[in-house]
């Protein structure tokens, strides 16, 4: 695998994680988290774990995101930190 591609993906992952944790708008945070999961899925696929990538994309990026959005639609959208 091309290692700099992997490196940049990892870098993006870290950035996405930090953004997801620091954004004050919950919807934005959840969207970032979905992006994070999707990036992770891409990375997993690159590493040859297609099954895991598929599952991560469906469950991590898809279902978790939808769950979170569903929950946020019930609770408040802004957060203290």
């Amino acid at each position: 695998m091309i290692w700099w591609l992997e490196l940049s993906l990892f870098g993006l992952l870290v950035v996405a994680a930090l953004i997801a944790l620091s954004v004050r708008d919950m919807i934005a945070a959840v969207a970032t988290l979905s992006v994070y999961s999707f990036l992770a899925a891409v990375l997993l696929a690159l590493m040859g774990a297609v099954d895991v990538a598929l599952t991560e994309a469906a469950l991590g990026a898809g279902v978790t995101g939808v769950f979170l959005i569903g929950a946020i639609s019930v609770v408040e959208r802004r957060t203290p930190d």
């Binding site: 099954d51 598929l54 599952t55 469906a58 898809g62």
Partner: peptide
């Protein structure tokens, strides 16, 4: 690639 989990999740 695929199986019960993935299908269920999808």
């Amino acid at each position: 690639p695929g199986g019960g989990f993935q299908a269920g999740a999808i």
